[in-house]
């Protein structure tokens, strides 16, 4: 899987590169619009992560131009501006998703996977974690043939943890994923813990959940 990171802030593109490479993605980097345009046309990327504020051109123009040229890569627009119009224009121009800075790399990765599922229709939309089957398409969880009734938030939480299995997800990462769209005045809340507690209770009624680990003082991890 090939990814082009178009971002003029080198430290930022470097961190993205490190993270995505660890997910076994091949990363290429462009620091300005010109070199990005060249690379997009010369290579075939699965993803283009496009910053809008490029030094030599507006990222939206690059997006427009690429789509016109029939480039089939999935574009994710990254911007610090987070202006509503940018988002609308970006999506209108054929961007596959939009993510506002500062964003979590885990969040970026999960968005990329969602696009993959949408675009290519993955063979199986069901993720298995031990005895549990998570059906992403229908948003249901089954255990040994029994359906488990989860709330929307509980399902999102389990799905996100499963997606990043074998890695610690901090409370902040989980909070941002679950409630990231709503800006609220509550940063010390332990609502994530409440959700995890409820989720564990529902899952453990069906089978053992030893794999659902609490990393004390940090967050949670799904081991598989």
């Amino acid at each position: 899987m090939n990814v082009l990171i178009v971002e003029d802030e080198r430290s930022l593109s470097h961190e993205m590169e490190i993270y995505l490479s660890r997910q076994n993605l091949n990363c290429d980097v462009a620091f300005n619009g010109k070199s990005a345009s060249d690379k997009i046309h010369a290579n075939s990327y699965d993803f283009v992560l496009l910053d809008l504020g490029l030094p030599d051109m507006n990222g939206l123009d690059l997006l427009r131009e690429s789509k016109k040229a029939g480039i089939e890569s999935a574009f994710i627009v990254l911007t610090a501006r987070s202006e509503v119009e940018d988002k609308i224009t970006g999506l209108d121009l054929g961007a596959d998703d939009y993510i506002a800075k500062p964003f979590s790399l885990a969040e970026l990765h999960s968005r990329m996977q969602a696009i993959l599922r949408r675009k290519h229709g993955l063979k199986s939309n069901v993720m298995s974690i031990h005895d549990f089957d998570i059906d992403i398409q229908n948003r249901t969880v089954h255990c040994k043939g029994n359906s488990i009734n989860l709330t929307k938030k509980e399902f999102d939480l389990l799905h996100y943890l499963a997606l990043h299995k074998n890695r610690v997800l901090t409370r902040i990462q989980l909070t941002e994923h679950i409630w990231g769209d709503v800006l609220e005045d509550d940063y010390e809340s332990n609502y994530i813990d409440v959700h995890v507690k409820n989720l564990r209770k529902k899952l453990s009624a069906q089978s053992s959940v030893d794999w659902f680990e609490t990393v004390r003082g940090v967050g949670y991890r799904v081991n598989a």
């Binding site: 930022l12 961190e15 993270y19 500062p102 964003f103 979590s104 890695r167 990462q173 940090v218």
Partner: peptide, 20 residues
Amino acid sequence: SHELQTPISIIQNRLENIIN
């Protein structure tokens, strides 16, 4: 606020990478 978004992004992503 705009100017602070980028440095925060960098630190945030770096922290994520270190934790991982």
